[in-house]
Nucleic acid binder design. Structure first.
Length: 886
RNA sequence: GGGCGUUUAGCUCAGCUGGGAGAGCGCUACCCUUACAAGGUAGAUGUCGGGGGUUCGAUCCCCUCAACGCCCACCA
């Protein structure tokens, strides 16, 4: 331990961070331990992607989760903070494929499935999971023995069990449907993974000849290249312009195929030309029209997004290129009328960023119609509560119009679908075991479905698969019964659909329980100007860089201070340095106390022994404690931070430490000892209050404050409000004390008296204040640098040649020898007077208003009366003395 | 097109169920005062987006307009 008298003037976080994380972790402080609450508190960490680098969003996750965990742990809950990592099917496969292409000029097909998957595992061992190291840096107090990867054995068993059960129940089914096809991934993706992005495009006006006539139908489309897939042209039956053509045949240009002209209400008379080409194979709406009219369905695309042989001479071209060529060709044929600029929303792959093609394909789906209804119920009846409540709407809006979930992905990295096929008898069945023969005909010619499951399928099971489900021995070992349902899910609003909704549905369906009691939805971290942090803008702030610069506690405090019920957190690195300064301030407050720690006693003196200022600081601390507790319970991290900040800064450092200097430098042993005791007591409580937010600094300081027998701070009890430490009178007294001193300092400042120059002061008081001020006159003298302080009755005469200031209960005079700039003083006082008068006018207006007097509650009326009287007294003081100046 | 949200001091934001507006940072002046210059003391700043309404009283409730942002939804 360093010498308490020789601590450095600045706190250096690095040392403490390395030291304490290790001690906590090795000392098993992160492990769940039964506490006085006899209850558990569980947070399952949203598993970051294995490919991920820690960004500010993760840092915010960790900060809020770890703050809650540390808070609850100290409150005496048996806490489990369960870490993990997600295999992130698409993202990870993409990373490795890219690396392979760059380094070896090979594709996954060159390797084959087995070898490729092995390659990803190798990559994962080598590069994956840096993020969990970074989480440690931030102080995440997870039980790392619970660490789970979504492809681990148990989650895999969970996935298989759920799939097989639901397959057998018919909830999971296979269907040939129009799905969102990602040509880059060459896989289907779910609706949730499609982003609609606004794109500048064109309406191409094309003429479709009408069979057995010289007429044409003018059709507007954004996608001329899909005309090879057209199987009808649709017109609204109400459309007077064209409806007589319904029933005739239109000829698709270029391929010269005849298609029926049909009537369908879906067609919008206003949009385009009012004539719609119907391409059921590549448009979701057209697909519906096709169903209504029993139209054939033509697939014109290859899996990689090029046109297939249906497109004749355009086969092999990408859609974008084909579009140009088709337009040129139409121009040649004189069947092209015009193009008009048109902005529209086009679906893009959330990961791949390429345009998504609706395409007919056979996929696995989960029927969510029933489970989504129940998931809504559970939130409606408060079994799970969102904080802030407003996010429930987002959750509902998704679950109220659910599309069946497309589960299968044509990838290699992930949980392979546990469905088997027999080549001989065409039998299909689902099985948790890897089958070797056909269940039905015993044939050995069987194979497993090659697709893998959507990553979110395993994520949806996360709250219980991490706790050992469905393996009973594992559940017992991991404490499933104790920790499930979990307590709070902390996440950003961007994955309410992807994740929260799915965990709710799956958990309710499988276990008939909601997976968590609370959902705290935190803000998304943006840059100072509110822009999303992105690579292209280069506006990202790297949390680890910030940790290196300012320390983990500073960044945690900054993120916590920015986290309440807001949806954006605009982060300015300057704020981090600001809170670094605050942390340093605490460090230095400790340095002040440090030399006196030995003197302090372990128990607080009896209340009758305490001085006014001691009672005051204890009362303020007590109130702070109450507010901090309440704030954490309501996920108001911002309020908690503010409360602690202002107590430490504005109460403890600015006044209590200042007021303690004389005592600690005096000879009075008892006074010194008593004050040292109060200081130490307060400081122990301050670091305890701070610990959930700034674990490192607080643990470091605790090591000096604790008794040898006491455990680490992480394992201490969180401070609670104590009614016996509520001293209202002392808090009110102290308000006067600080007001008078501030007034005197203000006066000194107005005539440029240097801080170290001492002055004489006379205060004229109401008699009822006399006692308080004479009792505290020594402290007033020292705080305001006064040589001689005279406390006089208001009836006494005021000194000549002086400057003055008034409060509602006293007049403060500072007699001066030299020349005073009277104009300045008059201006200052007149301004002050004006304020009072405005206040008085407002009050009297109200008090003269009969309606106000009749309807306002009595305490409000009383308050107004008091304000009026106080201001009248103050104004009177100023006015009287102003006359003297003039 | 549907829904949600935001608009308060130069910047970032807080203001609980209506009683006359706050914080941090920044800024200005003065200070190396024996915990801290990553500091101290003092100070300035707001038609609480516009308009209307309810009320004795509106930053807060209702209506309306505007700007910005987000989410969902059809590539005619």
């Amino acid at each position: 331990m360093s010498d308490l008298n020789n601590l450095p003037t600045t706190y250096s976080p690095q040392e403490a961070e390395n030291k304490w994380y290790k001690i906590w972790n090795e000392g098993k402080y992160f492990k769940p331990k039964a506490g006085k609450q006899k209850k558990t508190y569980t947070i399952i960490m949203p598993p970051p992607n294995v490919t991920g680098q820690l960004h500010m969003g993760h840092a915010l996750d960790v900060t809020t989760q770890d703050t809650l965990i540390r808070f609850k742990r100290m409150k005496g809950f048996e806490t489990l903070y369960l870490p993990g990592m997600d295999h992130a099917g698409i993202a990870t496969q993409a990373v490795v494929e890219k690396m392979m292409a760059e380094e070896e000029k090979k594709s996954r097909h060159d390797y084959g499935r087995e070898a490729f998957v092995k390659k990803i595992w190798e990559w994962k061992e080598k590069y994956g999971g840096i993020i969990s190291e970074q989480q440690r840096t931030l102080g995440a107090s997870c039980d790392w023995d619970y660490y789970t990867f979504t492809l681990d054995k148990i989650p895999n068993l969970a996935v298989k069990k759920v799939f097989v059960d639901w397959y057998n129940q018919g909830l999971i089914y296979q269907a040939e449907r129009l799905v969102n096809w990602d040509p880059a991934l060459q896989s289907a993706i779910s609706d949730a993974e499609v982003d609609h992005i606004e794109v500048q495009g064109f309406f191409y006006h094309i003429l479709y000849p009408i069979k057995d006539s010289n007429d044409f139908l003018e059709i507007a489309t954004t996608r001329p290249e899909t005309m090879f897939g057209d199987t009808a042209v649709a017109i609204n039956p109400k459309d007077e312009r064209w409806n007589k053509l319904i029933g005739k045949t239109a000829i698709i240009p270029i391929c010269n195929r005849g298609v029926p002209i049909i009537g369908d209400e879906y067609v919008d008379l206003e949009k385009g030309t009012g004539c719609l080409k119907v391409t059921p194979g590549h448009d979701f709406n057209d697909f519906e029209i096709g169903k209504r009219h029993k139209l054939p369905l033509i697939n014109i695309l290859n899996p990689e997004g090029t046109l297939n042989k249906e497109a004749g001479e355009f086969a092999g071209f990408q859609c974008k290129k084909a579009r140009k060529l088709v337009v040129e060709k139409l121009k040649e044929l004189n069947l092209f009328k015009e193009e008009k600029k048109h902005t529209h929303q086009v679906g893009h792959g959330e990961r791949s960023k390429v345009i998504i093609e609706p395409m007919l394909s056979k996929q696995w789906f989960l029927n969510v119609q029933q489970m989504s209804k129940i998931a809504v119920e559970k939130v409606k009846n408060n079994e799970t509560i969102f904080w802030p409540k407003g996010w429930e709407n987002t959750y509902f809006s998704w679950l109220n119009s659910p599309q069946d979930w497309c589960l299968s992905r044509q990838l290699w990295w992930g949980h392979q679908i546990p469905v088997f096929y027999c080549k001989d008898c065409k039998n299909q069945w689902a099985s948790e075991e890897v089958a070797s023969t056909c269940k039905k005909c015993n044939s050995k010619h069987i194979f497993q479905d090659p697709d893998v499951l959507d990553t979110w399928f395993s994520s949806g099971l996360w709250p219980f698969s991490t706790l050992g489900w469905p393996i009973e021995s594992a559940m017992k070992e991991k404490g499933f019964e104790k920790f499930f349902p979990t307590s709070t899910l902390v996440t950003g609003y961007d994955i309410i659909f992807f994740w929260v909704a799915r965990m709710m549905m799956m958990s309710i369906q499988i276990l008939d329980k909601v997976p968590f009691k609370d959902v705290y939805v935190h803000a998304l971290v943006r840059d100072k100007q509110g822009r999303k942090m992105s690579k292209s803008l280069a506006n990202g702030i790297d949390p680890i860089e910030m940790v290196n610069l300012y320390g983990a506690d500073a960044i945690r405090f900054t993120l916590a201070a920015g986290s309440g019920y807001n949806r954006n957190l605009n982060l300015d690195p300057e704020r981090i340095s600001g809170y670094r300064n605050f942390i340093n301030k605490i460090w230095n407050a400790f340095r002040f106390i440090a030399p006196h720690l030995e003197l302090a006693q372990s128990e607080l003196p009896t209340i009758s022994e305490l001085t006014h200022h001691e009672k005051w600081i204890l009362a303020e601390l007590n109130q702070t404690t109450k507010l901090v507790n309440e704030s954490f319970e309501e996920y108001r991290f911002d309020d908690a931070c503010k409360t602690i900040y202002s107590f430490v800064y504005d109460k403890f450092c600015s006044w209590f430490i200042e007021l303690s200097k004389n005592i600690l430098n005096s000879e009075g042993h008892n006074d010194k000892r008593r004050r040292a005791t109060v200081l130490k007591f307060s400081f122990r409580q301050i670091v305890a209050l701070l610990h959930p937010i700034t674990p490192y600094l607080s643990e470091e300081l605790w090591s000096y404050l604790k008794t040898p027998a006491e455990d680490l701070l992480i394992a201490q009890e969180f401070p609670e409000y104590k009614s016996e430490l509520h001293f209202q009178e002392d808090q009110e007294g102290m308000n006067k004390f600080t007001e008078v001193i501030t007034n005197i300092r203000n006066l000194r400042m107005s005539v440029n008296i240097k801080p170290k120059d001492e002055v004489n002061v006379q205060i004229f008081l109401d008699t009822k204040e006399m006692e308080y001020f004479s009792k505290n006159s020594d402290e007033i003298k020292s705080q305001a640098k006064i040589i001689e302080l005279k406390l006089l009755k208001k009836s006494e005469s005021r000194p000549a040649k002086s400057i003055m200031s008034a409060t509602t209960y006293c007049e403060i005079f500072l007699p001066l020898e030299g020349i005073i700039d009277l104009n300045d003083q008059i201006k200052r006082l007149e301004k002050e007077l004006l304020k009072c008068e405005q206040e008085i006018n407002k009050c009297t207006a109200k008090l003269n208003n009969a309606n106000f007097m009749a309807s306002a509650p009595p305490e409000v009326v009383f308050e107004v009366q008091k304000t009026a009287e106080d201001n009248k007294e103050k104004a009177e003081s100023i006015r009287k003395n102003l006359v003297g100046f003039k």
